[in-house]
Write a protein that binds this DNA or RNA. Structure first.
Length: 768
DNA sequence: CAGTGAGCGAGCTTCCGCTTGACTT
C-alpha cells in the first residue's frame, strides 16, 4: 500500500476513495480515538496539569485496523478537520499509531473534490502543536469544571446531578426566562382600527387602516371615538417606497435545527438523525457545521439549476460570510451534494428535510425580491393632527421568494401583505366601522429547543456537534421539561363606532398558550440558584467567550497552557473546597407557615428524591414528616393549604370487589392499589381527587388492555402481542415487527419464526 | 412494548467534543 489517508467520518472516507486511484486507502477514525478516563479526572493538577489518556474500549478495533494500515503504508496523510478538535485528533492518531514523522503528513481540505484533495496533498504541513495545546486546555478546563462541580451538587443538593460550562448556562437561560415571564405585568393599551370604502367611486373595495400609535387608557380611546363622530375622511398623503429582501444564507447546524423546527415541527434530535441519514446516503454535505460557505463548484451548479428552472434573471451567485461568533468553519454549509436533484430521501420525513435544504441553498443563490410598499395617510376632519394609516405591499419581482422564505419565532399571523386599490390624494372615504380594541403587552416567549440553540450559538456556547446532546442532557437530569403551556382566559373590551353610535362590548381571549417549550423544574431552579450564588463566574453568559479568547491565544503561541489553567483552577478549586466545608445543604427550603395540628413549621424543599413538603425540624426529637410533591405543584408556588393536603396519602377512595381502593404516590407517580395490584393514574389528573368510580374505571381500563394484549400464544417463548404501537411478535424477550400487509391474528407459529429469521437476516446485512 | 411502587445501610452518579453504531418502534 502506498498511501493511507485518515479522515474522521466513514461517509467522507467512502466519497474520497471514489476519486482516488488504487494507490490510496482511505480510512475513518470515527472522531476522537482516546480521551480522559471515564471515572476520574485524569488531570494531575499539582503537576502542570499533566493528563492521562485512555483509548476508548469501543475504538479498539478501529485503532488496530488503522495501526495495521499505517504500518503497511509508505505515506500516511492525516486529513482530519481543520479546527481545534480535528488537529487534536490528528495528534492523537500520530501518538497512538506511533507514526514516524518522516512518512506522516498533515493535510486539510474544505471541499470534497479531487482537485481540492490533490491541492491539499501538494501543501502538507506538520501538526500544529499550539492548536493541540489549545484543545487540551479546553478539554481539561471542561473536565475540571464538570468533575468538581457535579460532586459538590451531589453533596449539597441531590445525588446524580451535573453541572458544566455549557449545560449550566443553558439551564440558566431557561430559568431566567421563566422568571421574566412570572414577573411580567401586562399593560393594557387600545389599538384603533377602521374600515372605509370610497364615497365617490367603486363601493366594493374595503380599505383597512390603523392609528399608528396605541392609546394608553380606555378614557383616551373613548375620547378618540367621540371625536370621530360626524367626521369626514379623505386621503391626505400617499407614499410609495421601493424595498428589497435578501435571501438567508445556506444552512448551518443551528439554522437548520431552527427552521426544521418552525417549518416541519421536527425536534432538534430528529432533525439531526434525518440529516445524518441524508449525509450517509450521500445526499447532503456534512451536517455538523458552523459555516455558511458554499464551494465554487456548488455555486456554479446552483447557477445552472436556477437558470434552467426559473430563468437567468433569477440567478445571482453570492458568497456569504459567517455570522456566528466562534465559528471554526472546518466544513461547508449544509447543502445538497447535487443541487440539481430536487427530491431525494428514503421516506417522507427525510424528503421534507432534504427539500428544505435544497430550497434554502438554491434561494441563497437567487436575486433579491423587490417590493413596493404603499402607505396612505387618512385625514380626520375633526382632528387635523391625527391620521389613520392604510398600508399595502406589492411584490414587483419575487426573486428568491419564488423558492423559499425564512420563518421567525415571533411571526404573527396578520397577513400584512395587502394590496391597496388605486387611489389619489383627496379621495373621499366613508367610514364603515371604527374599533378601539383593548390589547395587552406580551411577555417574552419561552425557549423551544431550536430557539435555545440559536441563543447558545449567539453566546458561542456549545458546538454544532453538541447542541442536540446538551438539550437531551438537561432534560435527562430533569432540570427542564419540554411541555405545552395551556394558557389562560382573560377579558378584553372593544369599543365600536358605527353610524355615529358608540357601543362597548366585552370579549374573552386565550393568552399565553405555548407548545413544546422548555420549562424549568424545581430542581433546575434550585441548582441554578446554587450555581448563581457560589459560581456566578462559571454560569456567566460571557464565561465561554472569555476562555475561548484565551484558547485562541494558546493556539497562537501567545499564552502558555499551564499558566492559563493554573490561573483559572486555583481560585476555582478554592471556591469548591470552601463551599464544601462552610455552606449548608442547599435545599431551597421555603417556610410555608405553621401546621395547625402540631404547631410545627411547614417547609417546601428539595430532598434526596426530589421536591417534598416537610413538617417539623430535622433536629427535633420527633423526626419530621415528609410528603412528595405531585406533578401539579411547584416548590416556589405551592401554598400551605395545598402542601398539607399532600399528607392525605395514602388514602382509601372506596371499595371494589370487597377490597379497598388505596390511592398513593410512588416512584413512578400516583397509582391505585387494589388487591396487591398497581394501576397508574394517568398524567394530568389530580390524585388527591380520585373518586371510587374513577378508581374502578382506571382498574377496568387496564384489565381490558391486558386482556387484549395477547393476540396469540405459541408455547412460553413466542407470542403475538398488542403493544403501544400496534401488534408485534415477542420471542425470547425480544420484539419483532409485523409487516403492514399481514393480519396479526392469522399468523401461525411457523410464519412468526419466518418473520423473526427475516428480521435477523436484515440486521446482518446492515452490519456489513 | 408494560410494569415499576423509595427514603440508615453501599456504591453509584459527573464534563464537552469528535464520530457512528447498536438498539428498537
Amino acid at each position: 500500500m502506498k498511501n493511507l489517508i485518515i479522515v474522521e467520518s466513514p461517509a467522507k472516507a467512502r466519497t474520497i476513495s471514489k476519486f482516488l486511484g488504487k494507490d490510496y486507502t482511505v480510512k475513518a477514525s470515527m472522531g476522537h480515538i482516546r480521551d480522559l478516563p471515564k471515572k476520574r479526572t485524569g488531570v494531575d493538577v499539582d503537576n502542570g496539569f499533566e493528563v492521562t489518556y485512555q483509548t476508548d474500549p469501543n475504538k479498539k478495533k478501529i485503532i488496530e485496523e488503522l495501526r495495521k494500515a499505517a504500518m503497511q503504508a509508505e505515506t500516511v496523510w492525516l486529513a482530519t478537520d481543520e479546527d481545534r478538535e480535528g488537529e487534536a485528533i490528528a495528534w492523537h492518531l500520530s501518538e497512538v499509531l506511533d507514526l514516524k514523522e518522516s512518512k506522516t503528513y498533515r493535510i486539510v481540505f474544505h471541499e470534497i473534490t479531487k482537485d481540492a484533495i490533490n491541492q491539499a496533498m501538494k501543501t502538507p504541513r506538520p501538526i500544529n502543536k499550539e492548536l493541540v495545546q489549545a484543545q487540551q486546555a479546553r478539554r481539561i478546563l471542561d473536565r475540571l469544571v464538570g468533575f468538581e462541580l457535579s460532586p459538590l451538587l451531589w453533596k449539597k443538593v441531590k445525588p446524580a446531578l451535573s453541572a458544566g460550562r455549557v449545560q449550566s448556562v443553558a439551564v440558566r437561560m431557561i430559568v431566567e426566562r421563566e422568571q421574566e415571564i412570572n414577573k411580567f405585568k401586562p399593560q393594557a393599551q387600545y389599538r384603533i382600527i377602521a374600515e372605509f370604502r370610497f364615497s365617490e367611486k367603486d363601493n366594493e373595495t374595503i380599505i383597512q387602516a390603523e392609528l399608528s400609535k396605541r392609546l394608553k387608557s380606555k378614557k383616551k380611546a373613548e375620547e378618540f371615538l367621540q371625536n370621530c363622530k360626524g367626521a369626514n375622511y379623505e386621503i391626505a398623503d400617499l407614499e410609495k417606497k421601493k424595498a428589497k429582501k435578501k435571501p438567508a444564507p445556506p444552512f448551518t447546524t443551528s439554522t437548520l435545527q431552527q427552521e426544521a423546527n418552525r417549518k416541519l415541527g421536527y425536534s432538534v434530535s430528529r432533525t439531526m438523525l434525518l440529516a445524518q441519514q441524508l449525509y450517509e446516503s450521500g445526499h447532503i454535505t456534512y451536517m455538523r457545521t458552523d459555516s455558511v460557505n458554499l464551494s465554487k463548484q456548488a455555486i456554479a451548479i446552483a447557477k445552472k439549476t436556477i437558470s434552467e428552472l426559473y430563468g437567468d434573471k433569477y440567478s445571482q451567485p453570492r458568497n456569504f460570510t459567517v455570522k456566528a461568533k466562534m465559528a471554526q468553519e472546518a466544513h461547508e454549509a449544509i447543502r445538497p451534494t447535487n443541487l440539481n436533484k430536487q427530491k431525494v430521501g428514503a421516506d417522507a420525513s427525510q424528503q421534507r428535510l432534504y427539500e428544505l435544504i435544497w430550497k434554502r441553498s438554491i434561494a441563497s443563490q437567487m436575486k433579491d425580491a423587490e417590493l413596493e410598499r404603499t402607505t396612505a395617510k387618512i385625514g380626520i376632519s375633526t382632528m387635523p393632527k391625527e391620521f389613520l394609516d392604510a398600508k399595502g405591499e406589492v411584490i414587483t419581482f419575487d426573486g428568491f421568494l419564488k423558492v423559499y422564505s425564512e420563518s421567525y419565532d415571533d411571526q404573527k399571523a396578520n397577513g400584512s401583505e395587502k394590496i391597496l386599490p388605486p387611489m389619489k390624494v383627496g379621495d373621499k372615504l366613508a367610514l364603515i366601522i371604527m374599533k378601539a380594541i383593548q390589547r395587552f403587552t406580551q411577555p417574552p416567549y419561552r425557549f423551544s429547543e431550536a430557539s435555545l440553540v440559536k441563543r447558545m450559538e449567539e453566546l458561542g456556547i456549545g458546538r454544532p456537534s453538541t447542541y442536540a446532546p446538551t438539550i437531551s442532557t438537561i432534560q435527562k437530569r430533569e432540570y427542564v421539561e419540554k411541555k405545552n403551556v395551556p394558557g389562560e382566559m382573560r377579558k378584553y373590551s372593544i369599543i365600536e363606532l358605527k353610524n355615529d353610535q358608540i357601543n362597548e362590548t366585552e370579549k374573552t381571549e386565550k393568552y399565553g398558550a405555548e407548545k413544546g417549550k422548555l420549562i424549568p423544574t424545581d430542581i433546575g431552579v434550585i441548582v441554578n440558584d446554587f450555581l448563581m450564588k457560589y459560581f456566578d463566574n462559571i454560569v456567566d453568559y460571557n464565561f465561554t467567550a472569555r476562555v475561548e479568547d484565551e484558547f485562541d491565544e494558546i493556539a497562537e503561541g501567545k499564552k502558555d497552557k499551564k499558566n492559563m489553567l493554573k490561573n483559572f483552577y486555583v481560585p476555582f478549586h478554592n471556591k469548591v473546597e470552601h463551599t464544601l466545608q462552610y455552606s449548608e445543604k442547599f435545599s431551597g427550603a421555603r417556610l410555608l407557615g405553621i401546621d395547625p395540628k402540631t404547631g410545627k413549621n411547614v417547609y417546601a424543599k428539595i430532598a434526596k428524591f426530589g421536591p417534598v413538603i416537610q413538617i417539623g425540624e430535622a433536629d427535633d426529637k420527633e423526626k419530621p414528616k415528609f410528603a412528595s410533591l405531585t406533578k401539579k405543584y411547584s416548590l416556589d408556588s405551592i401554598t400551605l393549604e395545598e402542601a398539607l393536603k399532600l399528607f392525605k396519602f395514602p388514602y382509601v377512595a372506596g371499595t371494589y370487589e370487597g377490597s379497598d381502593l388505596v390511592i398513593n404516590t410512588g416512584r413512578y407517580g400516583p397509582y391505585v392499589l387494589h388487591k396487591d395490584s398497581f394501576y397508574s393514574i394517568p398524567k394530568g389528573e389530580d390524585p388527591l381527587e380520585i373518586s371510587q368510580e374513577r378508581a374502578i374505571q382506571i382498574i377496568e381500563e387496564k384489565r381490558k388492555v391486558q386482556k387484549e394484549k395477547v393476540i396469540n400464544k405459541f408455547g412460553n417463548e413466542l407470542a403475538v402481542l398488542n403493544g403501544r404501537w400496534g401488534p408485534y411478535i415477542s420471542y425470547k424477550k425480544k420484539n419483532y415487527k409485523i409487516p403492514k400487509d399481514v393480519d396479526p391474528k392469522s399468523l401461525t407459529e411457523k410464519e412468526c419464526m419466518e418473520l423473526i429469521d427475516k428480521s435477523k437476516a436484515k440486521k446482518g446485512r446492515k452490519k456489513k
